[in-house]
Design a protein around this nucleic acid. Structure first.
Lengths: 163, 163
DNA sequence: CCTTGATAGTTGAGTATTCAACCTGGTGGT
DNA sequence: ACCACCAGGTTGAATACTCAACTATCAAGG
């Protein structure tokens, strides 16, 4: 099967997205680091924990919600535990399970960092995109996430079957 | 000044984008690695070089075009040179300058990898987003990139002036 | 020329991430 | 009870990235 190359518009969309994302992530991460000693992934974990009942989540729940590998979550939580932003607790119901629990210090850190972070997101993303277009972004990336999360085996491989 | 929090739609857009991007980058990177021993950043560099006159670019030009730090480009190009995908050459006109030159092997690698990569991008991004929405993505992220590239000092800091 | 300051690029140490191997405890079948 | 298998999580080594310091060259002004 001959490759269906991207047309000019598609190519521009893909490159603009890639370049914009690179710059955006770098800026958000830098703002958080310089002002609050937090990385963006760490901040996201704080948010998830703060929203959870009792401010605690299983390691796997964190991994799923931020779409990071379990291994990565283990390492990241270890760092955050060292910084006393979270604590670990063995799960009573499931002997294998581990909870990460937001500490008061962790919560305070989030409350402290949130305003600036939101300003970063606004300044770099939300406020520079037309509201209509932003809705398209929401729709589009919801579709992308759906396509990639649901136990997708691998779209590429399945597409290449010769049946 | 009190924080302008994101409204529900904005929040959904931001989170969908973040989650979608995490999954997307991981998928594209994995597909390239498993099938062609290339990372996505390396692939992007191959593309830029292949499009350049004489298939060569200054280190700083590469860094600018893919929005990576110079240091990172140095490291990445070093790896690619080890794999014989590129060569380095001292710039005659500017004694400080260094060209990275695409080798035949590097070009062959790109030609080899491109069809699968494009299929990945289609399957995960292009084909799951409504064409209208994709145009919005293009517009939106072009704006984001513009806002962040042009010698922006730091939108956050300038916004926080108390004037 | 010579100095000053900027630009191009590299280096290595510190940090973050990935990957595969591993340990443990739950689950289902016999 | 036992066994095989799966899921949750951790570990450490290999790899990648960041950051600050550094070298070398260029460009401008005196």
């Amino acid at each position: 099967m001959t490759t269906r190359w991207l047309d000019s518009d598609q190519q521009q969309a893909w490159r603009a997205y890639l370049v914009g994302t690179t710059l955006l992530m770098e800026r958000l991460d830098r703002d958080l680091r310089e002002n609050h000693d937090l990385s963006l992934p760490e901040y996201e974990i704080l948010v998830r924990l703060s929203e959870a009942p009792d401010r605690m989540l299983r390691m796997a729940e964190i991994a799923d919600s931020v779409k990071n590998s379990r291994s990565r979550i283990t390492h990241t939580i270890a760092r955050m535990e060292r910084d006393e932003l979270v604590e670990r607790r063995q799960c009573a119901a499931d002997g294998r399970g581990v909870f990460a629990i937001l500490t008061d210090k962790g919560y305070a850190k989030l409350v402290d960092a949130a305003p600036l972070h939101v300003e970063s997101v606004r300044a770099a993303l939300i406020d520079v995109i037309d509201p209509e277009d932003l809705q398209s972004v929401r729709r589009g990336f919801t579709a992308v996430a759906d396509g990639l999360s649901t136990g997708t085996p691998d779209p590429i491989l399945t597409r290449h079957r010769t049946d």
